[in-house]
Design a protein around this nucleic acid. Structure first.
Lengths: 200, 200
DNA sequence: AATCATTTAGGACACTCGTCCTAATGCGTC
DNA sequence: GACGCATTAGGACGAGTGTCCTAAATGATT
């Protein structure tokens, strides 16, 4: 077992538990049971529950950055990359139906708790937003890039919430189809406008 | 002070606190302080915290039913009524930005708590869904009524979540404008189809 | 004025929580 | 084998929780 591995185990377990139960409802005892560690020993790795939360948020940030970087590599078309983002709700459908969106539900909870790390959690959402903006800019819609990015992000949050509420797989599929159609129309429109401006 | 008034005060205070702090994070002490009641006296009105939750959900259900009934009366065009629903995110903008959607956030929390009253809370969302379905049916789109209803509901949840995250008023306004445009296009399409079928 | 049901206050109860301390364990190095 | 460091286990601590009991207060009715 490498150095810091136990710490990482704790963060991983906390990450999963914060997602499935919520931050406030997850106790040291819960995490300790998951990692098979003494409850008292916790203090050695983390001084505070909030410290664990910060570590979890850092991990989630790093995970999402890696995911976005992978999409940046594998798909060279910005529209394809946005499609990757859209299709997370299908890829993670089971978990979303059970626990909602990991990012959205954390931000919501920390807001209600008026927690100091709320801003930090917001950065994950901001990460998605900024990445989406870059994609839409690259796609050609400079003026509307921010609007479109927030639209897609908002869409994903809505789908996640309703999927969790009604557990309706067909609904998720329909919404994905519709937003993909919307994305295609955006793509067509921008290429059309680009053709005009090039001609001029 | 009329009989049962104290009970109603408790439910009202709990309603507001559950919304702003969350159900689990609201203690008997919090509610007692809000209603200026002894903590021990609570047991006389409600045996259990879950009983208060059920009463709060009942109140929210009744409130929403009243709201929808009012819209049914005041607006005779189904599209107008749907517009009323859409514009709640503007009317309640301040509270939504602070605490999110009262319905969505409660369902999300109770799901993570694996709480027995989750189904009951879901009924509020189902109430909105069914009402929206009725409006879309009346508008003329029978086959797509359920899809459209869930689409609008999902949209509202997404907007609420992102409004709470980024506190961006302009974003809310844009999203409302876009969905109203979408609604208008639905309306045009159905009247067009109705004209064709009437002619045949 | 006395009675009685309704409503209230205050606190006991057992439990869980996050935090923190201390003694013991494991283990590589001299 | 002995030392020293990193890691662990176990439990103490006070605060806060939901629940529940009992005695006092209130107020309408007789």
């Amino acid at each position: 077992m490498a150095a810091g591995s136990k710490r990482q185990q704790i963060v991983n377990a906390a990450d999963a538990l914060f997602y499935s139960q919520g931050f406030a409802q997850t106790s040291f005892a819960d995490i300790a049971a998951a990692v098979q560690i003494s409850r008292g020993n916790f203090y050695y790795h983390f001084k505070t529950k909030d410290e664990i939360l910060d570590a979890v948020i850092d991990k989630r940030l790093a995970d999402r950055e890696m995911l976005l970087a992978k999409w940046d590599e594998t798909a060279d078309d910005p529209a394809r990359r946005i499609e990757c983002f859209i299709k997370i709700v299908i890829v993670n459908q089971a978990k979303i139906m059970a626990y909602g969106c990991p990012v959205g539900s954390l931000v919501t909870e920390l807001t209600k708790l008026d927690h100091a790390s709320r801003e930090k959690a917001n950065q994950i959402m901001a990460l998605f937003r900024d990445w989406l903006i870059r994609q839409f800019v690259e796609l050609g819609c400079h003026a509307d890039a921010c609007d479109h990015a927030l639209h897609v992000l908002s869409w994903s949050q809505g789908v996640a919430t309703l999927a969790q509420t009604f557990k309706d797989e067909a609904f998720v599929q329909r919404e994905v189809s519709q937003i993909l159609e919307w994305l295609a129309s955006i793509e067509r429109e921008t290429t059309r406008l680009q053709a005009i401006s090039t001609k001029a």
